[in-house]
Design a protein around this nucleic acid. Structure first.
Length: 855
DNA sequence: GCAAGGTC
């Protein structure tokens, strides 16, 4: 009988292992694979009635992502509007380059492929990515549906052995509609996000000098996220505080003072409040208060639901003051250490198969948790978790998996997040807390006053350390002070003047809640979006961890609102989501949705670009415009007027006349009076970079090409500015041939190359274009400065006459003593020895190197 | 350099 070859692919390594364990009843072999994370678990079993060799492995999330084709990557040559119609392609995601090879290798010769991705749209999409990776390696032709199918999809609702086996016995097919709905979302997000981001980044950077943001980004998720923060700011600033009054009666009884408040509540008119107080005071002599009513009510504080991701983010931010981004990262780390279950889940209900007992015994094995769990059990817990909550099926709620001793984890944040997760787990299985409210009502004259005593009669889940601070609001030990019909003699009446308070800025926890409510981002991406708007400097985090919009954030929001409020509205995202859902359910085809949505956003883009000047007035109030800054510097090639040099984080030249901005690199600039670029007639400038070497550049050529060039990684040599960086568009420009300044190989470099066997070619010595009494090497630190006390001028021979011995170009020298130009080689002639009062470095090496090279 | 979505 032929043994079938079956490959199962899961979305992540942990699920691959769970599946292998369940299907093989625990007897499988594991081997390493090309990607250390995606191991392969093998066993023999039956597949569709035949004996089969089954391999289970995984990918690491998406294998591919979308990007523009290469020609669209240049910010300067591509108009942002074109991006709406640009070609896009699927490219292997950064982290997945090994995964593709891994899949093709493992799929070689297989008969069947079983896709065990998470049961959501993204999972369906990744399933298709896996198919495209393995289709050429399979022995059989990949058929994705029908009787002759060779590619199947496992749909599981829980990761229990029973459910995994059930899923394996009822395999279905990949849902192409769901998969393509993900591509729809990706294409729209990419094109819209990148087009708007590029356009507004360039627009604002070229316009405002004090705006140091490298990037002014726009995104269908990040921008509405910013919107929530600014909307709250608006609520705060619109708020006008109102004065109100509370009538308070302080009663003394048994050496204790209690404050009773008028049943009228807040009184907003001062006259009314004063009148009531006066009436009470005027008749206080002889008038007694009387307790006319005592009511006792109980209030149940429900235990928390099992923990899902969003809830964890909110709780940790609120109670532990750790940012959602950080919590997500700590939880991931706890998960990979095997301490907690998978931390990205929407489920808030334990599945029926969930083994609570197993978790409890794991906790009991540590001395930290043993007494707590023991105490917990002694109260006949665990209770079944609270009614309500959702079981999404793929991942159970976040719970501890293994006990950890206090102090044994990586750092304090790990400790606190782990403790919170354990506490939430125990709390979700505890008793509800019960609060008893005792409300007393007292009558003085015709006025009623109340006093409330709250007692926590059943602490329940509030006893776990993460929640104990709730208990502080209850006066646990208070005795009952008053009885029905008691008469009160000893009291004073007073008026408390107060003001209504504005809402506070959004906390991270509030923001997570709003994003979840409006469907902005997913549990895994919400922390990233929040982090994004902080990193881009649209909001700042206050010391109380509240999100305060910055001026930039506020201006962007106001600008969008002025031009097109939908750009910041959360509704737009949900509208797109609805259309995508129709693709997923097969009601509409993907292409028409992409076209439809892009058309809408393209129109928005065009309108936004036409009206962006309305944003200027907003920005000008806060950011300095280029017009009002800078000093006249070099000549513009278009209008021949002086451009202004603006030296900020991003150096720029700004032509007021042409209203154009040229970006310059970091460093200092000197003017090269009169020398112009042959290509565009802009005046050349000398740039002294952080390496301290002067470099001649045309600002226009530099600005046009700067986006493609990483200057830090380049080595510098004379003439590079206008030649080697291909900045210059003119081949006839003499400045491309800047080797007028070069002398010859650097002796110091030659020596170093000898010693270190460096494969790098040695540097070149050149006369500084700024000061002809200085000679530099373009690579090493060698620098030669002639003393002004003895040397008048040094220059290169116009004819490129070279030294016969070492091939260096000859220099002429004019000294104070001789007054005539003398000619010689820097290395080989004694001429320079006299003025330098030293020999040139490593001449012998220099010569030997030359000789060897010329052999 | 740019979006958002998975996962390490």
């Amino acid at each position: 009988m032929i043994m079938l070859q079956v490959l199962i692919v899961a979305e992540k390594p942990s699920i691959a292992e769970t599946v292998a364990n369940a299907l093989s009843q625990g007897s499988y072999c594991t081997r390493a694979a090309r990607t250390s994370a995606c191991r392969v678990h093998e066993f023999q079993s039956y597949f569709r009635g035949q004996k089969a060799n089954i391999k289970v492995t995984s990918v690491l999330g998406h294998v591919y992502g979308f990007d523009f084709t290469k020609e669209y990557n240049d910010w300067n040559s591509v108009d942002a509007e074109e991006l709406f119609f640009a070609g896009i392609r699927k490219v292997v995601a950064d982290s997945s380059s090994k995964v593709v090879k891994h899949l093709t290798k493992e799929a070689t010769g297989i008969d069947y492929l079983v896709l065990w991705l998470d049961c959501d749209r993204e999972g369906e999409n990744i399933a298709c990515e896996v198919i495209s990776c393995v289709k050429d390696s399979m022995r059989s032709v990949p058929v994705i549906s029908g009787n002759r199918a060779t590619v199947f999809r496992a749909k599981f609702s829980a990761l229990t052995t029973r459910d995994i086996c059930r899923a394996m016995n009822s395999l279905t097919f990949v849902d192409i509609n769901q998969a393509s709905s993900v591509d729809v979302r990706a294409e729209i997000d990419l094109k819209v996000g990148v087009a708007f981001t590029r356009f507004q980044t360039q627009y604002f950077r070229d316009k405002f000098s004090s705006l140091d943001s490298k990037l002014v980004s726009y995104g269908p998720c990040q921008t509405p996220t910013l919107g929530f923060c600014v909307a709250r700011l608006d609520e705060i600033s619109k708020f006008s505080p109102e004065t109100f009054f509370l009538i308070v009666v302080n009663v003394r009884k048994d050496n204790r003072t209690t404050s009773w408040y008028s049943c009228r509540g807040k009184i907003f008119e001062r006259q009314v409040a004063n009148a009531v107080v006066e009436r009470l005071n005027s008749c206080s002599n002889g008038i007694l208060g009387k307790i006319i009513d005592i009511t006792t009510t109980t209030e149940r504080r429900k235990r928390p639901l099992p923990l899902n991701t969003v809830e964890l983010l909110k709780l940790a931010s609120k109670k532990l003051k750790i940012s959602p981004h950080q919590v997500a990262s700590v939880a991931e780390s706890l998960y990979t250490q095997g301490l907690i279950s998978y931390p990205r889940t929407e489920s808030s209900k334990y599945p029926p198969s969930f083994d609570i007992e197993a978790v409890l015994s794991e906790l009991e094995r540590t001395s930290t948790w043993f007494p707590i769990v023991k105490n917990f059990r002694e109260r006949n817990y665990p209770n079944k978790s609270r009614q309500g909550g959702v079981d999404k099926g793929d991942h159970p709620p976040i719970t501890p998996v293994r006990g950890a001793e206090r102090g044994s984890l990586r750092n304090a944040e790990h400790e606190r997040v782990y403790e919170l997760i354990v506490n939430c787990f125990l709390a979700s299985l505890s008793e509800d807390a019960v609060v008893t409210n005792q409300q007393y009502c007292m009558l003085i004259g015709r006025e009623k006053f109340f006093f409330c005593q709250r007692k926590l009669t059943v602490p329940g889940w509030l006893e776990f350390s993460s929640f104990t601070h709730y208990m502080e609001s209850f006066n646990m030990n208070s005795q009952i002070l008053f009885e029905q019909n008691d008469l009160i003699e000893d009291f004073t009446v007073s008026l408390e003047e107060m003001q209504t308070e504005p809402p506070k800025y959004l906390s991270e926890s509030d923001l997570v809640g709003l994003m979840e409510k409006h469907g902005i981002g997913t549990d895994a991406s919400i922390p990233t979006h929040i982090n994004n708007i902080i990193m881009r400097d649209y909001v700042r985090l206050s010391s109380e961890r509240r999100l305060i919009p910055t001026q930039l954030g506020i201006l962007l929001y106001r600008g969008y609102q002025k031009i097109d409020p939908q750009l910041v509205s959360p509704v737009v995202r949900s509208h797109i989501e609805q259309e995508i859902s129709q693709v997923a359910s097969g009601q509409v085809d993907a292409i028409s949705v992409v076209e439809h949505c892009l058309k809408i956003f393209w129109k928005k883009f065009v309108y936004f670009r036409e009206h962006i000047e309305t944003m200027d007035t907003l920005f000008e109030t806060v950011f300095t415009t280029l017009h009002s800054r800078g000093k006249n510097f070099s000549l513009c090639g278009r209008c021949n007027r002086y451009m202004k040099l603006i030296e900020e984080k991003q150096n720029r030249l700004f032509c007021m006349n042409c209203n154009d901005t040229l970006r310059l690199p970091t460093g200092k600039f000197h003017i090269m009076n009169g020398y112009k670029c042959q290509g565009d007639a802009f005046e050349l400038v000398t740039w002294v970079s952080s390496w301290g070497r002067p470099l001649l550049i045309c600002p226009k050529c530099f600005s046009d090409s700067s986006s493609n060039t990483n200057f830090k990684e380049l080595e510098w040599y004379p003439g590079m500015g206008c030649t080697e960086l291909s900045m210059c568009r003119s081949f006839s420009c003499p400045w491309r041939q800047w080797h007028q300044c070069t002398i010859g190989l650097c002796g110091q470099c030659v020596q170093q190359a000898e010693v270190s066997k460096s494969p790098l070619s040695p540097g070149v010595l050149f006369l500084s274009p700024l000061d002809s009494l200085q000679i530099y090497c373009n690579r090493c630190s060698f620098c030669l400065k002639f003393s002004r006390d003895s040397v008048v001028q040094v220059g290169l021979e116009e004819q490129t006459e070279k030294c016969n011995v070492c091939h260096s170009r000859k220099l002429w020298l004019e000294t104070l003593t001789s007054n005539i130009k003398q000619k010689g080689c820097l290395y080989c002639d004694s001429l320079f020895l006299v003025v330098l009062k030293r020999d040139m470095p490593r001449r012998a090496f220099h010569v030997s190197y030359r000789k060897r090279r010329t052999k």
